[in-house]
Nucleic acid binder design. Structure first.
Lengths: 155, 155
DNA sequence: CTGCTTGCAAAGGATTTGCACCTTA
DNA sequence: TAAGGTGCAAATCCTTTGCAAGCAG
């Protein structure tokens, strides 16, 4: 299980993918793409909207939702599920990678899964339960290195 | 990793816990408790309401939400997160147990976690990331033994 | 130019809240 | 009988949709 470095140049890649998919590259879309692609933190639609408006004050919330939908369909962003809600998005990563989410600030790191261990578990689970296993989710929650310091300081 | 048998007598236990917590045991609460405690399937608030109305036709949706909130606060039920939504509840289980959810019918089985493997992963992740790991979620998705047959038959 | 996109506002759906009445303890 | 609980309806909140006007290609 190893830490996965964050990717660079996501913006141009995402714009290219949108273009390939037949979507037009408009100013509002560029802004939404930049906001999410450059964020290491999970962002809810409202937060994306707020950040986008800092660059482009008249952008509408509906446009944010519509863009999020396309990015999700293209697999460029993914939804992060947390105890307090499941409407937060972050740049997707490829392969079997598992998010490590800071409960305090929403910062996300990814780990590449240990394919062997998980495969063994899946098979075991399948045999005992009679289920066909199609997918698994593994997520870690905690405090990132910055937030753990703030937390210590405030106690 | 072993299959966890479903628990019996949840209803009286939950009612006792509600009582201990200072809540009154009313007819609507009993009905909601019976509906969820006896279900092997994840249930959304609307579904709980529909099932509850079969036994007690005038029960209100708001009462269902209020009861769900209390049961969740007491840790008696837990939210199941799925790709298509996170408002589904099922009886909680104790200890480190991981749900295996049928995508088709919502049936849930639990597995007791392999504490050793997960502890090792957590520590590894903590060391590499600098995070304090507080919690993890491991969920499996697939088709239960009944649904896999239906699925084969219909193809 | 053509038709996809946008922003706004209205609609829709889910969840929460206010309140008078009712029931538990 | 007092306090908590209920059902209903109204209020909220989030998300989606309709539409005329605005741009990308």
């Amino acid at each position: 299980m190893t830490l996965v470095p964050s990717q660079q140049n996501l913006v141009s890649e995402w714009l290219a993918r949108l273009h390939e998919a037949g979507y037009r590259l408009t100013a509002p879309r560029r802004v939404v793409v930049e906001v999410i692609a450059n964020s290491r933190y999970v962002l809810e639609p409202q937060a994306v909207h707020a950040l986008a408006r800092q660059r482009s004050p008249h952008i509408g919330l509906a446009t944010v939702y519509r863009t999020l939908e396309k990015l999700e369909d293209l697999g460029l962003i993914q939804r992060i599920h947390r105890p307090d809600g499941c409407q937060a998005f972050i740049a997707a990563v490829e392969g079997h990678r598992h998010p490590l989410i800071c409960r305090r600030c929403g910062r996300v790191e990814y780990f590449s899964g240990d394919a062997e261990i998980v495969a063994r578990l899946s098979q075991h689970v399948a045999e005992e339960s009679g289920y066909i296993i199609q997918e698994h989710w593994l997520q870690f929650f905690g405090l990132c290195s910055e937030c753990r310091q703030d937390d210590t300081a405030s106690n």
